[in-house]
Design a protein around this nucleic acid. Structure first.
Lengths: 328, 328
DNA sequence: TCCCGCCCTGAAACCGGTTTCAAGGCAAGG
DNA sequence: CCTTGCCTTGAAACCGGTTTCAGGGCGGGA
């Protein structure tokens, strides 16, 4: 069933059917009624692809996460970003296409094949070469996270240096002096979090003890392993800041296995504020990374661009908020 | 930039450019070289929408979850299903469109507007009226979960009755005699889980105590509240089966607050086996619902249908596996 | 030498819509 | 009564590809 056939059945032209379907003002009530009757009888739905071609708008935007699907959908931070993007698009009844595992070739295709009206780019942590292809897109692009200081592309990122700083200051305020850092793998986020951690230490007149800073992989396993390692040291730390909640879950397990109480013997602070972090034993003190908002605002910037607006601010850095629970 | 312009620049016809781009066998090396040079110079990428229209294949499939995005992307079970679907599609380099909050109208549109080549339907729990529109789709549809016994639509569901049965039997085998049930809201899943629970009790010669069976909403809050209620009873249960891990997290918290030890005073078994369930204190005994596999297999059925194959089995019920940890 | 068939290429039709443009009908105004 | 202009409608162009079909060139067989 297509528009031509509907037109024949209703005894009108394709153009008229199109006008009726798009609520064009200049159609007579009779014609409208005739067309609508046929449309209903036949259960006709216009072909979305043909419509997109003619209108030069697909009505959906892509969230590109250049990682395997297995990883992207299993990652609490990224699914929260999806949630934010999805919520923003839903309000405008736009479609959401999630593209995972995009290599440089397919990425460059997405940028120029007009299969979507705009792109939100997320999940690039290291200074990825993929980020270089960002500005040759033919549709608006917004990045979650900060791709690279040079690029002029709009982005929404978090102030993770401030977040790490706040968490560390909180640990210091609780009286801890030997603080450990379990960071993520080298990436734009990790560098900032380490910087915030260090800054808080220096301001408190404490030296940054390199041997108390280890790098994990954002997994609970790595958190547990590294925490165990730190606790096995002759002078073990009394507080630890982990650059991700998931690693903190591992750290809590490690403390338990070592027979230490949290926060009595060890204060633990994480970063992300995933939903589960309120349910750990004890509930985790952490920095809320506002992942949902990151996605929501990024989609908002994109929608503004699609409407042709030029937002006053197109490079946004969200402030982080410390969530104090019982683990510190 | 379009195919016509490329053709002009290369001094050939549109048809030839198309043949080169699609690796058609009958093109001379010279023509191929000429076209490829221009394509590279201009950074040309064929318009995906026009291509989809001409080919009558969009190259992407839709995962429809008729719930608000806020809910769908925040739900551990559903994101696992997404992960499975995504992983299956990624292997075939097909696109994934996630459609949330589809009301009856937009749902019927998705089924017939040819904006995707196939549909995986998930997230319907109750006997939703939406399920009735399933068979008027013009593209193949596969459902995650069992929509309704009458419908002949292909589906992949879990054997949750057996799962609940296994968990309950496990609790009984641990010597518990007063067992409580915290079920989800009325839905196709919940009915089965209750049935499995009851069957295990009856087989053990125990009566099903209606006052020990409560219905929550799959949230940790409701789990905590209902568990507290159950523990406040004069004769409190010594074991509980909760129809979702998230509710079990709440139950663990309730036990802690009541000063009861798990599994000493109360054995707790959940259902889902979310990643976090290995990290609770104590780690949670639960039934693995294989959400990832549910999505993966559903996408597999769809891919088979798209290839024109008729799978021997198009209505699949996955067996559940009990994961015994320290909470029982 | 002529004819046949294959290889390569381009013209044109097609996918299924939207939009422009022109024209017919009719009411209002001069 | 004629002109003007608005309202409504249809024909045709267009969006940007793919695919069919027909034809030209060329090599091989008779």
């Amino acid at each position: 069933m297509n528009i031509k056939r509907i037109a024949e059945l209703a005894g009108v032209s394709k153009a008229s059917v199109s006008r009726v379907l798009n609520n064009h003002p200049s159609v007579s009530p009779e014609l409208r009624a005739a067309v609508e009757t046929v449309v209903r009888q036949e259960g006709y739905e216009p072909n979305a692809v043909a419509r997109a071609l003619a209108r030069r708008r697909t009505g959906n935007i892509a969230l590109v996460i250049p990682r395997p699907a297995q990883f992207a959908f299993g990652h609490a931070f990224l699914t929260e970003v999806m949630r934010g993007v999805g919520a923003a698009l839903e309000a405008q009844s736009l479609g959401l296409q999630i593209i995972t595992s995009a290599g440089p070739a397919s990425l460059s295709a997405i940028h120029r094949d007009r299969s979507c009206d705009g792109i939100v780019f997320a999940g690039i942590w290291a200074d990825d070469p993929l980020a270089r292809h960002l500005d040759d897109a033919v549709v608006p692009v917004v990045v979650v996270g900060r791709p690279s200081p040079q690029l002029a592309v709009p982005f929404v990122t978090m102030d993770d240096e401030e977040g790490a700083y706040a968490a560390t200051r909180h640990l210091l305020a609780r009286g801890h002096r030997r603080l450990a850092l379990v960071n993520g793998p080298a990436s734009m986020w990790s560098v900032n979090r380490r910087r915030g951690f260090q800054r808080a230490l220096l301001e408190a007149g404490l030296a940054f003890d390199r041997s108390l800073a280890l790098d994990g992989e954002f997994s609970s396993d790595s958190g547990q392993r590294l925490m165990a390692k730190l606790l096995a040291r002759p002078e073990r730390p009394t507080g630890v800041f982990l650059a991700s909640d998931v690693m903190a879950y591992g750290a809590l397990a490690a403390a338990r296995q070592t027979g230490l109480s949290v926060p009595g013997d060890l204060a633990v602070a994480g970063f992300d504020n995933f939903p589960f972090s309120a349910l750990t034993e004890p509930p985790l003190t952490t920095v809320d990374a506002h992942a949902f908002t990151l996605g929501f605002r990024a989609a908002g910037l994109l929608l503004a661009a699609l409407r042709g607006e030029t937002p006053v601010e197109s490079q946004i850095t969200l402030p982080m908020t410390l969530v104090v629970r019982s683990s510190t």
